[in-house]
């Protein structure tokens, strides 16, 4: 589904990603963990080209994103993204946040778009919030609307960039449970997270990144149970 080859990303002289290689299979849930500044968010943002990689290849469903001929806008329709800070559109209601892109990008009728949006709001447990503006929603509710917004484009892959890091502790659970449901339904997901419990329970595979490199990867049991790399051990000993 996703294949990343020899990915490099520099910000000026700073090398943020160094030769990252990885594959994500269809319906797989991959969790990316690592200390802050390890490049995991940048890695994720490269996958939908919110960051322009310096070099390498990124293939999604047979399309190389770094090919100049690739229409990045149409690729992004298939790659949903959920941000740490939600980034809902504050001038639109929850429903409008969800219907906007399907209507403008996919030219869906308002009727169809709203039907999908209502179903999705129902799914994330917010069917009573259709006409509410984001600033009247709690953080957890905003993030669930943001997930619904991304799902409305019927993406093949969902990217999550620390989706619970900006939430109050009591709201983390509601967002994670929506993500669990999604994983159970077979969505292909790449999740940058500090929620080790989630990575362990939901992740099919865990990737540990440090200083811009992919240091270790394996099943959650391998990585959390018997890490091979010293830096992984050090990191896990600090947080577990």
């Amino acid at each position: 589904m996703i294949e990343v080859k020899n990915l490099y990303k520099n910000f000026g002289k700073l090398e943020v990603l160094k030769d990252v290689n990885c594959r994500v299979a269809l319906q797989e849930v991959v969790c990316v963990i690592g200390p802050s500044g390890s490049g995991k968010s940048t890695f994720l943002r490269c996958i939908n080209m919110l960051e322009q990689p310096t070099s390498g290849e990124i293939w999604i469903d047979g399309v190389n994103l770094l090919d100049k001929k690739t229409n990045i806008n149409s690729v992004r329709q298939d790659v949903g993204m959920v941000f740490q800070r939600f980034n809902l559109f504050p001038h639109k209601t929850a429903l409008e946040n969800i219907t906007l892109a399907p209507m403008k990008v996919k030219n869906l009728s308002r009727e169809d778009a709203e039907k999908t949006a209502r179903d999705l709001l129902n799914k994330v447990g917010l069917s009573d919030k259709t006409d509410v503006y984001p600033d009247q929603l709690s953080g957890g509710q905003q993030q669930r609307v943001a997930i619904a917004r991304a799902l409305a484009m019927h993406p093949k892959v969902m990217l999550f960039d620390e989706p619970t890091s900006a939430l109050d502790p009591e709201m983390v659970g509601e967002v994670l449970s929506v993500m669990k449901d999604l994983a159970r339904e077979g969505m292909t997901m790449v999740v940058v997270t500090h929620e080790m419990g989630f990575a362990r329970e939901v992740g099919d595979r865990v990737i540990f990144m440090d200083e811009g490199r992919l240091v270790e990867e394996g099943t959650p049991d391998q990585v959390f149970g018997s890490p091979r790399n010293d830096r992984t051990k050090l990191f896990l000993s600090k947080i577990l």
Binding site: N48, L50, N73, S74, R76, Q77, V79, G80, M81, F83, R85, N87, L88, F89, P90, H91, L100, A101, K104, V105, K106, A146, R149, A150, M153
Partner: peptide, 27 residues
């Protein structure tokens, strides 16, 4: 307007022009 607004719009597949028109300029 926060950078995240443009990113969210683009991540949904909107072009730069669409993001400007529907998300950035109205705000």
């Amino acid at each position: 307007i926060e950078k995240g607004q443009m990113e969210a719009a683009r991540s949904l597949g909107m072009t730069h022009g669409q993001a400007m028109r529907y998300i950035i300029l109205p705000q």
